[in-house]
Nucleic acid binder design. Structure first.
Lengths: 117, 117
DNA sequence: ATAAACTGCAACCAAATGGTTGTATCAGAG
DNA sequence: CTCTGATACAACCATTTGGTTGCAGTTTAT
């Protein structure tokens, strides 16, 4: 189980960070190329401080990292975190498959349902 | 592009709905088997109304559907919505790949960068 | 017909979110 | 050294969120 690295709190932060269009856009841009905070701020119709807060949220969720370069902080998207989110969603798929399996078993049996677990 | 069905608002709701441990658990349970709202409420250490609100959030995000059965409302997880979330994350992966491609091009060239697009 | 179980919804509350402005720090340019 | 650009951070504010209690409406059971 590769996902056990993540606490429930971590998962909360991860999905919450993705639940904002500006932040998703920042992640997209910084996955393609490193961008400074002020470059990002120029792109959105809000204050520098607001963009900075979004970056901070993404950083706490570890969806981006920051690296000092002179007086700028370059923001870089962290693909590994995206992959962790994907793995979490994969688990939901597996659960769903288990429902199908249970149905199959029921259909294949003419005995009463087996003791649970 | 299969994801264009989703507005930014839809995506916000989708990820926000997933950003709560109780709601994720409800989705997991209702993906495996249909469960009534009161059965769900029994499982968590909060009021019935609180659980009902969580279900409502999931319903708005279309992560679950409800179906009347007698006096109960059976909650059923909607895998398709999970898959849409996965596709959204896949797009992030593709963007990241484009970064690599760009690097490859730069390394392979000794001419100045080609006109973009 | 009554009572009990299941649900929906409104009103309320504390805390978190997403934005603002203002001030301070820090690195680079003149 | 001084000015400017880039960032950080605090204080503040409106709205949303996640919880509560209370009440009303339906469906089932007695």
């Amino acid at each position: 189980m590769v996902v056990s690295e993540l606490s429930e709190q971590d998962v909360n932060r991860l999905f919450r960070a993705l639940a904002d269009a500006t932040r998703r856009d920042i992640v997209r841009r910084t996955l393609v190329t490193d961008v400074s905070v002020s470059q990002l701020a120029d792109s959105y119709d809000m204050s520098f401080a607001a963009v900075q807060k979004h970056v901070a949220v993404l950083e706490e969720a570890r969806l981006v990292t920051k690296e000092s370069r002179g007086r700028e902080r370059m923001v870089r998207g962290n693909l590994e975190r995206i992959r962790q989110a994907q793995r979490l969603l994969d688990h939901f798929e597996e659960l769903w498959r288990s429902r199908i399996d249970r149905l199959d078993i029921l259909l294949a049996e003419d005995e009463p349902a087996p003791p649970d677990t």
